[in-house]
Design a protein around this nucleic acid. Structure first.
Lengths: 154, 154
DNA sequence: CGATGATCCCGAACAAAATTCGGCAGCACT
DNA sequence: AGTGCTGCCGAATTTTGTTCGGGATCATCG
């Protein structure tokens, strides 16, 4: 993980579909070298994958919400079961398993408020392990496109 | 946005760096057709970009937390200023602007607990517009890799 | 002090992919 | 049946991915 790897990673985070040659040129190395570096980053697990980012409204998902959930009993089976089943729902973007007063944070999208309401009533109200949940609408979601390595603490 | 576009989108979300030919073959059309479809998806803004997903621990980011923030006064300038300045910090993965009891939810990463603590003291405690904030550690973060269009509600 | 090996990078050669573009088929409308 | 439109295809051309042999650099060790 030298600064060459970091530079390559930066470019792949910016645009994962640009050609290997373009990246090689930008970071100032030969295409073959760049290809090998990318292969190693992938193999070492530094790069976990490449994903297209889609526009949510274009997919008919016009509202977003964050749902804080408390479950009981808070044991391994209930936690794993909740994570798995909830993360598979099409309306769910991601599931955070947390420490603190709430056990999960679920990022949800829906077509509109009615759909969101129906979704919550169908998928959360019924579940017996769910003690309670609170829903907060999301106005905007900004994401940091580039993640550089942080220096290790000794 | 027919089911052909949907299929292409699915493959690009799964692996954005696979070749156009591979996608074309999987969805059963000619490479040239597939290329044109992808170009249009990009142009229409359905595809917003392609990003490499990196492994946070490999970047020295071993802890994650969610910070709920309340700011005052809650006006346009303060909100926009908070969003912009906070989303630029290297420890910040994303900023959710919310309705409800908290105004923002900030997803942060740090090398370890000490770094997280120092970050919060440096970047949040000092800011005058911040009324208060609560920090919750994240044990796990699951993300849904594939987002299909939801049917429109009439 | 030079030999040895390891590591990393380069560039040429070949295979594969992207890209362009002319044309054909299906379809709606007349 | 004619006309225009749209979307798709496939061949030709350019660009890219991929492999591999060899050279430069550097540290280790005899």
């Amino acid at each position: 993980m030298d600064e060459l790897d970091t530079a390559i990673l930066r470019h792949l985070q910016e645009d994962a579909r640009q050609s290997n040659r373009a990246i090689a040129e930008k970071v100032g190395i030969a295409p073959s070298t760049c290809l090998e570096r990318i292969r190693l980053l992938r193999q070492r697990g530094v790069i976990r994958g490449y994903h297209a980012q889609v526009d949510l409204p274009a997919l008919g998902r016009r509202v977003q919400a964050m749902v804080s959930v408390q479950v009981r009993p808070l044991n391994r089976d209930v936690v794993a079961g909740f994570e798995r089943s909830v993360s598979e729902l099409p309306e769910v973007l991601s599931v955070y398993t947390m420490a603190g007063s709430d056990d999960f944070l679920v990022h949800v999208t829906a077509q509109d408020i009615e759909h969101l309401h129906a979704f919550l009533l169908e998928r959360f109200t019924n579940r017996r392990e769910i003690l309670g949940f609170r829903t907060s609408m999301i106005f905007q979601h900004l994401t940091n496109p580039i993640l550089d390595p942080l220096p290790p603490t000794p």
